[in-house]
Simulated assay, not measured.
Amino acid sequence: MSGTVIATHGLRKAYGAVRAVDGIDLDVRAGDIYGFLGANGSGKTTTVRMLLGLVLPTAGTVEVLGRPIPKAAREVLPRVGALIEGPAAYGHLSGTANLSLLDAAGPGGSRRTRKARIAEVLEQVGLGGVGKRAVRGYSLGMRQRLGLAGALLRRPDLLVLDEPTNGLDPQGIHEIRLLLLDLHRTGTTIFVSSHLLAEIEQLATRVGVLDRGRMVLQDDLATLTAPTGATVVTTTDPAQAARVLGDRVLTSDGERLVVRGSDPAEVNTALVGAGVPVTGLVLQRPTLEEVVLAAATGSGDRVAA
């Protein structure tokens, strides 16, 4: 699979006078782990539902796997695994039985391989030992894992996930992250909607940021967090370091100085040669949080307080 996997143009959804999604242009490419970021209420879930043909847009177009949605939904959706808003399940049935019903209800699921595929995905999401238990006895995190298992049943080309780590403890979040990275390595393109910046920063290759329905940022993560051309110096004698480096010092905060220059070795040589103790040297890179906050600030009065 190559090329663009999800593309929207001028996508908009209005509920009366309220524009939940306001003219966004998504660009998700084959092989991406695309982090779709935004605060709760920013329009992420509405966008995801339009991508899957569950909600019709007020204006604009959607293409998934090169085909128009919702027109080609019957053709496209068997190749897409999705988990949106929260997993639904029959509480009196086991996890295995729920997945069997899900697989039988949709197109593209082979009955011959169903049992093996269900066992495989339950193991993948950490429910291998509890698949026969009734779902009403599952915790919220276990239900979330079961929903993810359902999304993986048909070994999709594209995985669309809305807050997939909701309800999971830190260990569960870590395990789901590793699972998604494994799926990515095998060629699955992943679109994951989340408000957890730190988690997306460890996972995504590309990000888009939604703020009150508008796209305020979209780029490769490596580009957004590239070195700034400055070096961060940590020293127990910041006053002497500042005297040695002079106007190269951009900012100073306690024992931490940000210095103009992208060669830490050269900065280190200058300081050590002057007898300044250096305890840390690293190229300055903005965090994803800093990038997102800057983008949101630039969107003016559309930013939530």
Results as ranks from 00 to 15, higher is better:
residue 25 D to M: 04
residue 281 L to V: 04
residue 261 G to D: 03
residue 252 S to I: 03
residue 86 G to W: 06
residue 107 P to Y: 15
residue 127 L to I: 00
residue 97 A to N: 08
residue 108 G to L: 01
residue 106 G to F: 10
residue 121 V to D: 04
residue 54 L to M: 10
residue 163 E to G: 09
residue 121 V to G: 01
residue 139 S to C: 07
residue 191 F to Q: 05
residue 92 H to V: 05
residue 50 M to G: 03
residue 191 F to G: 03
residue 54 L to N: 00
residue 264 P to A: 12
residue 21 V to Q: 03
residue 145 R to W: 02
residue 39 A to R: 06
residue 204 A to E: 12
residue 157 D to R: 10
residue 217 L to I: 05
residue 26 L to N: 07
residue 124 Q to I: 04
residue 198 A to M: 02
residue 60 G to A: 01
residue 161 L to G: 15
residue 3 G to H: 09
residue 203 L to D: 12
residue 286 P to G: 12
residue 204 A to N: 15
residue 226 A to G: 11
residue 172 G to V: 05
residue 44 K to H: 09
residue 244 V to D: 13
residue 84 I to Q: 06
residue 251 T to S: 15
residue 244 V to Y: 08
residue 142 M to S: 00
residue 7 A to N: 09
residue 282 V to G: 10
residue 179 L to M: 14
residue 193 S to N: 15
residue 113 T to G: 10
residue 192 V to F: 00
residue 78 P to D: 07
residue 190 I to P: 12
residue 209 V to P: 09
residue 123 E to P: 04
residue 290 E to C: 02
residue 193 S to E: 07
residue 179 L to F: 14
residue 239 A to H: 15
residue 34 Y to L: 07
residue 209 V to D: 08
residue 195 H to I: 03
residue 33 I to L: 15
residue 186 T to E: 15
residue 223 T to Q: 14
residue 112 R to M: 08
residue 167 G to K: 12
residue 8 T to I: 08
residue 28 V to Q: 13
residue 96 T to S: 14
residue 69 I to D: 12
residue 129 G to C: 02
residue 304 A to R: 14
residue 146 L to W: 00
residue 129 G to F: 04
residue 256 R to I: 09
residue 216 V to G: 04
residue 84 I to L: 10
residue 184 H to Q: 14
residue 120 E to G: 02
residue 71 K to P: 05
residue 240 Q to D: 12
residue 242 A to K: 11
residue 34 Y to Q: 08
residue 221 L to N: 06
residue 119 A to G: 13
residue 145 R to C: 04
residue 168 L to P: 11
residue 285 R to W: 02
residue 213 G to A: 01
residue 247 D to F: 05
residue 48 V to I: 15
residue 148 L to C: 05
residue 43 G to C: 02
residue 168 L to C: 11
